[in-house]
Design a binder for these strands. Structure first.
Lengths: 158, 158
DNA sequence: GCTTGACCTGGAGCGTGCTCCAGGGACGAG
DNA sequence: CTCGTCCCTGGAGCACGCTCCAGGTCAAGC
């Protein structure tokens, strides 16, 4: 990020964001942005200034944002790379891209369901402690988003 | 696991499960069970046979199941250990245990919300591809559990 | 033109959570 | 008692996803 705090990019024809500004914009570290590029996660080499410094353009930023969504939902780096390769390869492999995304979607949904179920059990435990402790110290009596009441066999006095 | 496939444990007074049977029962690997014990995640040293082999009893198995729930929802090993320490310390620190669980619950809920939001965006992308490809190859038109429609700025033609 | 802060590359390092291995003892059916 | 398994310990190794570093270049305000 340039030292001078320019909240908005230069008013004239913008040549793209520096890596620091891009990092700020997408919520990743500078190192991570470089790492993604090195590791083949980008759609194209990020454009450079005359002197070789990165200048992220809108398309690059939008792509990085998609990558962060995929990563944030647990898609491994290698699969993101695979997806990037497909997109890079151009039209004709849409079915393959679709299948990759659908597969990921299945995983995410399964993960959400599993976590929600476990959370239900943990909530039950919280309920027990709330009753045992008199304190309503913070937070209202717990209840999960979808309380998926699982058989909560109380675990060994814990 | 004993070689002889005994689907149910010996009918007589059971002295606890071997580590292989315990692993099977809780869905973890043998190595992971040993690792958990070494790393201080257990409530007590797992009971041993005369010759020093582990014999998991009900209390141990129930505790391991709680640990798996905490791990499956993303609680780091170090925090599970902290929780185990509290329980081991005995009565009097229930408020602290409660706070630990509540804190974890907050994290899990935040995580669920974030993942769900990102999934909404990914779903939108899937929708685009489904339209672009003629194929309804598998799965009905996508839609998330809570479709939390986030502003889906389409990312750089991907 | 100088200075100062930002950026570059290649490569090493690290935290997390297991997973594997060698060398040796325990168990139980026959 | 003897096999064939299973289990033990201590410690090394590994996959993943960054994160940090050194040594050097670039950029822009004065």
């Amino acid at each position: 990020m340039s030292t001078v705090d320019r909240t908005s990019p230069p008013p004239h024809a913008t040549a793209g964001l520096s890596i620091a500004d891009a990092a700020q914009a997408v919520g990743l570290s500078i190192d991570t942005l470089r790492y993604y590029e090195r590791d083949g996660l980008m759609l194209r080499p990020v454009p450079r200034s005359g002197g070789g410094q990165r200048r992220y353009e809108d398309a690059d930023l939008r792509w990085v944002l998609l990558v962060t969504r995929l990563r944030a939902t647990g898609l491994p780096i290698r699969d993101v790379r695979r997806y990037a390769e497909l997109v890079r390869a151009g039209e004709g492999n849409e079915a393959e891209r679709l299948e990759l995304l659908r597969e990921h979607r299945r995983h995410v949904l399964a993960q959400l369901a599993e976590v929600t179920e476990h959370l239900g059990a943990i909530d039950a435990k919280i309920g027990v402690y709330e009753e045992r402790v008199g304190a309503a110290s913070s937070a209202p009596p717990s209840s999960s988003p979808s309380p998926v009441s699982a058989p909560v066999s109380s675990p060994a006095r814990g």
